[in-house]
Write a protein that binds this DNA or RNA. Structure first.
Length: 1102
RNA sequence: GGGCGAUUAGCUCAGUUGGCUAGAGCAUCUGGUUUACACCCAGGAGGUCGCGGGUUCGAAUCCCUCAUCGCCCACCA
């Protein structure tokens, strides 16, 4: 082993080993308890940042720990197509101003290319972290399987009446000509004039003067107090006005707000809002006479403005909701168009952009005498488009919504409920636990205020809404279609294994019987269409099945299904078959990629078929596999679906369900795509092959659903976690996971957010390069707590790099100790271990240090397991860190230099490696292979669970440690030359302590030591009492220094004694506190007093 | 505006049903390199637990007031 650990020499190789071993793949037929995590899929927009690194570290620790604990651990990797984010990045990447500069198809093609590239980067980075992920199950939110799940879900919700299409308020960016999601808005403070306007008798207020041009309801608070006043101007005729009483009572504010009026007000009467409701009147606006209608709503805040407002139903969220609530059909008036210009209703301002109209309307109203006041100091926040920097207008537009408060019948329980109720019940009912707990409150707060979820987006990149409209505008949904893939029976060529030059040959007798057997398996199915290729054995198979089943429909021949060229599969599938290799070599030369593209064409053609019933495809194994690969969205170099298809016996059939375009003439699919969170919300089971409720459950789904933990950043609790809970319960009848673990944002050492501009950002790959993945993992996990920021800086990372190196060097020490000795590996096998004296807990004959370290190992192991079970990863890491460094290295290894017990040394170190493995997978595996088993993997071993508890040994060794520390302290205080050995006497009859004499001698650097029940006090000695034992350290005589030392010690003891006495003299303490505690206090006091006495007598003897 | 949370050593933070002398890492001070490790070892110093009240035998921990800071959600009357 080299002197310092260099991660670069090992990490990539170790990861390659793990991948090659196939051990990362989870087995859905395993009898072990499952433990499932689906990885939150990173966006395919860029690179991994430290937040991802933290996520990967935490999840990997849990996965490895659970696997070593005997679970069937499954951790599914994946990526997210991140609809809006990706689309924007791609637009920028392509140098477009807007996407319409390209055709939809071309744009999607480019986006796909871009996403693939980013995907590859992200996967590479993910592996660098040392992640134990099941790559054979990798998923992508936009692949075929996930699309199928999305469509299934959409249909379920639609059929339950929970998805509706309706006109809703959206954020419209005039500049970008696009809808923006709420979280895409940027807010800016803006100063604009605030107007107080006459509206009949009422005074209303607004900053949006341009919208006060149409008929409107006028809203008051039903319980609000309104003043009807007589305004007597200094010049001119009096008039009546109505506005909030609170405003009238505050004369100073009134004068300030109604600054265009000069005169006085007289109160006529005070009215409640409800008394004014119902009246209709006409009033002048800047665009002419308009009708108004008074109604009331609690939404009104009497303190704001005048306590009265008119509304713009089409152009403000609150207003729109009011209109819905009060069913204000007549007031859906479009005042602004999608170009951001005023419509005809605005009269003199028609055609003007909003900003210009706003000023113009103010001027007009002023000149018409409609204003009573204008506040030029008013400031408000306006939403802006982050892309075009224009002001975002709330507009009404047709959108798809998920109705969270609409009642439906739960298909699993049969009970009526709502999506919102189910989300509340998840956490309230304890089905889903959120860590840290405080986020449960945040969750409830959000759910309680939850509104219908707008799921449609006016972008191209994403799952297109699976809805078609016919010419009458009627809605059609896709149909579920079952595809059955049948592999052809055995042919003569296959039988003889010699078909070089041709891949076509008729079925053998066996092949014919295989085809019949396949047909038997398909009896009773509703097959309405049979498709096959133009090669004989496939066509024969199809013919036999058709005859056996008595089907009437014609067999369709699709030449493109014909299979050729297997060249690129060589080595993966045809490992052992020389004849097949030869066949491949002489084939047509179609590349693997070509094959897949051909399969994709067939795949798309299959989806276009309009038929009731099931479709049977009798093909060739390679091509069937390629079709499967399309379904899984695989690329040419990697499609595990291939193996599945290949291994299907001819008598079996592979089935898959797809969605097909609905039947009908001139159907037009909805142009919009789904919110990216729609597909993400299905992630816990769409990754497990879910295709709908009931009988269609996949083996993965049955074994691994529900998931166990959902680990992610707290910032997507609402966007993602809550929606997974909602969809999961609705679609599967089960909450998708039982625990939500939220990690915080990674920030710098000072707790500041990392950002490029501040220059405090850290690139995970760079640090991994520098210090290794293990150290990075530790830094991201230790010293953190769920939901709180994860502080990270160079110092911290360096600290954990040092730890990794420490672990390495402990290994080197052990290697050197064991070099000439043949110490067999301690048995890590359960059965063998039970025969070992160690496992029986028989510590007889071992040294104090051995007993101590075994006991400590047991204690720490139990603690680590307990911490990890509770997801307290930081505590677990901390416990390991201190055990390894402060106990194993600083004391046990030092003790080994005095009295070596190679067997125990090796055993404890082995256990430490396993204990540490989930946190530091690379270095532990590396050392494991160098020291213990060059051909094994530490991941195949059981997580440690030793039980050698010996509280006595721990206590006694602690005393030894205290003695050593005390001697070292005295030595340091006396400024003795470190090389100078000194002599020490200890008054003790404890045989264990006596037996540790040699150890004490070395650790404290002593020339001589005497431990006896009665030791004579040396003439010149520093005196101390450690855990009740008198300690004499022989030192050169220096009464002054000794006096000082004793005085200091005595002071401390006195302080302690007076504290303890104070407590004990309080009768209510002795009466009410637990007796054990009182006893403990008593004992301490006795020992402290004893020590004090001795020290005092020493002092007086000086 | 509504909500959530924080305030403990110079810095970043632990402190799980209230109970030993309130802990860790980094920084700092003192002393130490012939063989596991200077990416190291040994020892030390450093805290009125934000302020003020209350409950209790006992409060960093529970309750109230205030102060300061952070975050989330709302936003155009």
């Amino acid at each position: 082993m080299q002197k310092a650990y260099d991660h670069n020499d090992f990490e990539d190789d170790i990861y390659a080993q793990w991948e090659a071993s196939g051990a990362m793949r989870a087995d859905n037929s395993s009898k072990k308890d499952p433990f499932t995590i689906v990885m939150p899929p990173p966006n395919v927009t860029g690179q991994l940042h430290l937040g991802h690194a933290a996520m990967l570290a935490i999840e990997d620790i849990l996965i490895r720990y659970k696997k070593m604990k005997g679970h069937e651990s499954l951790w599914i990797p994946g990526t997210d197509h991140a609809a809006i984010a990706t689309e924007n990045v791609v637009i920028k990447h392509l140098g477009l101003n807007k996407r319409e500069e390209m055709s939809r198809e071309d744009f999607l093609e480019e986006a796909k290319k871009f996403a693939t590239e980013k995907h590859d980067t992200i996967i590479g980075q993910t592996k660098k972290m040392g992640t134990w992920l099941d790559w054979s199950r990798e998923a992508y939110t936009l692949d075929e399987t996930r699309n199928h799940a999305v469509t299934t879900m959409f249909k379920m919700l639609y059929e339950d009446g929970l998805i509706e299409r309706g006109y809703r308020m959206i954020n419209w960016s005039v500049g970008a000509q696009s809808v923006l999601a709420d979280d895409e808005l940027e807010w800016e403070d803006k100063g604009e004039p605030f107007y107080y306007i006459r509206c009949g008798e009422f005074i209303i207020a607004t900053v949006r003067s341009e919208t006060k041009c149409a008929d409107s309801p006028l809203i008051l608070h039903p319980e609000g107090q309104y003043a009807r006043v007589k305004y007597i101007p200094n010049e001119g005729t009096p008039e009546t006005m109505i506005f909030a009483k609170v405003l009238f009572d505050d004369k100073e504010r009134l004068t300030k707000l109604f600054n265009l009026l000069e005169g006085r007000f007289e109160l006529i009467e005070t009215l409640k809002g409800s008394e004014l409701a119902g009246q209709e009147f006409e009033s002048e606006t800047f665009a002419g006479k308009r009708k108004f209608y008074v109604l009331t709503d609690e939404l009104i805040d009497m303190e704001k403005g005048t306590g009265a407002m008119t509304i713009s139903v089409n152009h403000a969220t609150d207003d729109y909701e009011l209109a819905q609530k009060h069913d204000l059909k007549d007031y859906y008036i479009e005042k602004i168009d999608f170009e951001g210009n005023m419509t005809a209703i605005a009269g003199p301002c028609a055609g003007m952009p909003v900003a210009k109209a706003r000023k113009e309307a103010g001027k007009l109203m002023k000149s018409q005498g409609l204003l009573v006041g204008q506040d030029n100091t008013y400031k408000h926040r306006v939403p802006k488009c982050y892309r075009s920097n224009c002001v975002v207008e709330p507009m009404i537009s047709p959108q798809w919504f998920i109705m969270v408060e609409k009642e439906f019948t739960d298909r699993f329980s049969g009970e009526p409920t709502t999506l919102k109720k189910q989300m509340q019940e998840a956490v309230r009912g304890g089905h889903v636990k959120i860590i840290p707990e405080q986020y449960e409150k945040v969750y409830f707060h959000w759910i309680d205020n939850l509104r219908d979820w707008c799921i449609s987006r006016q972008i191209w990149w994403g799952h297109r809404i699976p809805v078609w409209y016919d010419e009458q505008g009627e809605i059609h949904l896709p149909k579920k279609q079952k595809l059955i893939f049948v592999r052809h029976g055995e042919s003569e060529a296959a039988r003889d294994n010699i078909f070089a030059g041709t891949i076509d040959s008729p079925l053998t007798e066996k092949g014919i019987s295989q085809a019949r057997a396949t047909a038997q398996n398909l009896k009773g199915r509703n097959i309405t269409k049979i498709i096959t290729s133009d090669l004989s054995r496939a066509a024969d198979t199809a013919k036999i099945i058709k005859e056996e089943l008595g089907l009437t429909s014609e067999i369709e021949i699709w030449p493109e299904i014909t299979e050729y060229n297997w060249g690129e599969f060589e080595g993966t599938v045809f490992e052992d078959n020389a004849a097949l290799r030869h066949a491949a070599a002489t084939n047509t030369g179609e590349s693997n990629t070509d094959l897949l593209q051909r399969a994709e064409r067939v795949w798309n053609k299959l989806k276009e078929i309009e038929t009731e019933g099931e479709i049977l495809i009798a093909g060739h194994s390679t091509f069937t596999a390629a079709l499967y690969a399309c379904k899984e969205g695989r690329k040419s170099e990697d499609f595990p679906g291939y193996r599945e298809a290949w291994h299907v016996e001819p008598a079996e059939a592979l089935e898959t369900i797809v969605h097909q375009k609905p039947e009908g003439q001139n159907l037009r699919q909805d142009e919009d795509t789904l919110d990216t969170w729609f597909s993400s919300a299905l992630w816990p089971y769409s990754t497990l092959g879910w295709t709908g409720p009931g009988s269609e459950e996949s083996a993965d789904f049955q074994k691994f659903y529900p998931n166990d933990v959902l680990e992610t950043g707290w910032d997507i609790l609402f966007f993602w976690v809550a929606r997974m809970i909602m969809f999961g319960k609705y679609a599967t009848g089960k909450y998708p996971f039982h625990t939500v673990y939220l990690h915080g944002l990674v920030c710098d050492e000072k707790g500041k957010k990392m950002s490029k501009s501040k220059g405090n950002g850290i690139d995970p790959l760079e640090v991994i390069e520098e210090v290794g993945a293990d150290a990075v993992r530790l830094s991201l996990v230790i010293g953190t707590s769920p939901g709180n920021p994860i502080p990270l800086g160079k110092n911290k990372i360096k600290g954990y790099r040092n730890f990794v190196n420490k672990l390495w060097n402990a290994g080197r020490f052990i290697q050197m100790q064991l070099e000439d000795k043949s110490i067999p590996n301690p048995s890590f096998n359960k059965e063998e271990r039970s025969k070992s004296p160690l496992i029986k807990g028989d510590l007889e004959g071992l040294s104090l240090a051995d007993k101590w370290i075994l006991s400590r190992l047991s204690t720490v192991t139990a603690q680590v397991a307990e911490n990890l079970e509770k997801y307290e990863i930081s505590s677990a890491g901390d416990a390991i860190y201190h055990f390894v460094w402060d106990e194993f290295c600083d004391w046990y290894i030092e003790a080994s230099k005095v009295e070596l017990n190679p067997e125990i040394l090796k055993y404890v170190y082995g256990e430490i490696l396993k204990l540490t493995h989930p946190l530091c997978p690379f270095i532990t595996e590396t050392i494991w292979q160098q020291l213990f088993d060059p051909n094994g993997s530490i991941m195949d071993l059981e997580y440690p669970n030793p039980q050698f508890g010996s509280p006595e040994a721990e206590a006694t060794f602690t005393t030894v440690q205290n003695l050593v520390t005390e001697i070292r302290k005295i030595r340091a205080e006396k400024k003795l030359n470190p090389k100078e050995k000194i002599s020490v006497k200890i008054k003790s009859d404890n045989t264990e302590i006596k037996s540790a004499g040699d150890l004490l001698k070395v650790l404290a650097n002593l020339s001589e030591i005497e431990i006896e029940a009665n030791v004579a006090k040396p003439e010149h000695a520093a005196v101390s009492v450690v855990d009740g034992y008198d300690l004499y350290v022989e030192i050169p005589f220096d009464p002054e220094a000794e006096k000082n030392r004793l005085t200091k010690e005595i002071e401390q003891l006195q302080k302690k004694i007076s504290g303890l006495e104070g407590r004990l003299s309080n009768p209510s303490y002795t009466e009410k506190a637990p007796p054990a505690l009182v006893q403990q206090t008593q004992d301490e006091l006795t020992q402290a007093k004893d020590g004090l006495m001795k020290m005092e007598s020493e002092l007086s003897n000086l």
